[in-house]
């Protein structure tokens, strides 16, 4: 497992990818600092809506994870190097799991640090709220990673499909039809955040905390299972 993990981290950490992720992660932090230094004092709920919900959860987090997790398999498929791994005497889950962990290793620090910095500025003095937001962001990274990892194995258009999911489904459709949130990773992560600190965030969650935990577990386990199954069934180039 360690060999696949280290290989994938090196694949994902190469070249332009880290720079783009760093740029994306720095965006919300810079925006927050700009607003605060300009003398503006937005209300916390405004801040949550614009920076944490729209910017971080709605765009930065899924985009950073998409760049990392979708590439974990799709790079191998494009380069036709996946056979190096599948021709090894190891169970397929021993390929999928380290790929997921490697995608997490690359994407999570950017998202977690960005979220930590922004929530610290927003909830100064409220450690529990900072922790709730940061922890939910990390779980969000895990959920999207599992989904995009499978997508990278399933389709050569993983980046495009992932982008459509983030922009059209989560960004537009779930805002239009509230029932659609039942199938939204962003909503699961948000529901968990509300559960972690119900005192501050318990407002209009659709999912209870236990239901959000169950859905999160199902998403990660389900997409891992689908990835293993795909790896067993597919023709490896």
């Amino acid at each position: 497992m360690g060999a696949v993990y280290r290989l994938t981290v090196r694949q994902l950490a190469g070249g332009w990818r880290l720079l783009i992720m760093a740029g994306l992660a720095a965006g919300p932090v810079l925006f927050t600092m700009l607003v605060l230094s300009a003398g503006g004092s937005p209300r916390v709920d405004q801040f949550e809506q614009v920076v944490i919900d729209a910017m971080l959860a709605g765009a930065i987090l899924p985009l950073i994870v998409l760049a990392s997790a979708a590439a974990a398999f799709s790079n191998e498929l494009e380069d036709k190097t996946l056979a190096n791994l599948t021709l090894a005497p190891i169970a397929r889950w021993r390929i999928v799991l380290p790929k997921l962990l490697a995608a997490l290793t690359v994407a999570a620090p950017f998202v977690v640090l960005s979220t930590l910095a922004v929530s610290y500025l927003a909830y100064l003095g409220d450690g529990r709220a900072v922790l709730a937001v940061t922890l939910a962001a990390f779980i969000g990274v895990l959920l999207y990673s599992a989904f995009f990892l499978w997508l990278g194995l399933k389709s050569t258009q993983a980046m495009g499909i992932g982008l459509l999911y983030v922009v059209v489904w989560e960004g537009f459709f779930t805002g239009l039809v509230s029932g659609a949130r039942v199938l939204s990773l962003r909503h699961y992560a948000a529901s968990l955040m509300h559960g972690f600190d119900a005192r501050r965030f318990a407002t209009e969650t659709m999912l209870s905390f236990p239901a959000a935990v169950v859905m999160a577990v199902l998403v990660v386990a389900g997409f891992l299972w689908l990835s293993v199954r795909r790896l067993r069934k597919m023709d490896v180039p």
């Binding site: 090196r10 694949q11 380069d79 190097t81 190096n84 090894a88």
Partner: peptide, 23 residues
């Protein structure tokens, strides 16, 4: 097919010449 244990005894060199260039 779907028998990874066999790959202890089989060596395969595919037609694709791409490698992990960073290694």
């Amino acid at each position: 097919r779907n028998n990874p244990a066999l790959y202890r005894r089989i060596g395969v060199m595919s037609e694709h010449e791409t490698v992990y260039g960073f290694l």
